[in-house]
Design a protein around this nucleic acid. Sequence first.
DNA 1: TTGCAAAACGCAACAATGTTGCATTAAAAA
DNA 2: TTTTTAATGCAACATTGTTGCGTTTTGCAA
Lengths: 129, 129
Amino acid sequence: MTNPRNTKAKQAVLNEIANSSFALSQPELFERVKGTCDRVTVYRVLDRLVTENKIHKIVNIDGTINYALCASCDDSHSHAHDHLHFSCVTCKKIECLEEHLIQVKLPETYQIKELFLTISGICPSCQPL
Amino acid sequence: MTNPRNTKAKQAVLNEIANSSFALSQPELFERVKGTCDRVTVYRVLDRLVTENKIHKIVNIDGTINYALCASCDDSHSHAHDHLHFSCVTCKKIECLEEHLIQVKLPETYQIKELFLTISGICPSCQPL
DNA sequence: TTGCAAAACGCAACAATGTTGCATTAAAAA
DNA sequence: TTTTTAATGCAACATTGTTGCGTTTTGCAA
């Protein structure tokens, strides 16, 4: 295993992700760390952070890829994302709902590896009165 | 409401989707109807078919977008895709498992619109002995 | 503290996927 | 058959992501 390094770009990207209440895409992240590093670096930093289990990748319902911290995750175990994501159609934010675990029964001829559940709708902050 | 027309391109695309046992992406579809119509037309045809509720869009776990018929769907009702998709890590094919409906309970502060569940794993055809 | 190996970076170029504008073609209704 | 306008082709552009390579910087170790 190679030694990961702590660089300015990595810190900046991780910081933005950590301080955001919702998942961010690469373009959104680049916008926020602009000046700190190159566009390509953001891609590479994100790949590394995912590999290091610092962040995880969320595919939104429209196919866009977003990144978020995972409160329940630490470096010591591999990621098993059997929790769900909520995607708000109003504010477009993506939340992890880690307390909601998913269980599905399939015929035994299917071997399940991972579950990806995203629910679209209106989040609490965007509810009309 | 405008009148949809039945064109060669539309028939060709729909035909490929109907004759495939798994969901196809735009590039895959274009490859299969090459010669019949332009690349851009495939995009437009797909948009129209989705609007007309003839096919539905599936976002795969890697963010790629695929299209499939929905056996249980007809033109008379709006699409509610509360069934799940199985994405095989071996053959890369995506299947609709329409018999498996999903039910999730969230706090009432969340207003649910649609559910997107994709399970990755190994499909029956790709199981090792 | 300084030197060094390689991890990480910037930049340029490229690739894949999707979108838009506009003039032309062709469905399907009159 | 004529007419209307949905649909197409083509060219140009936009966005997102990738690759190669020479240069910089980090973290370790002398």
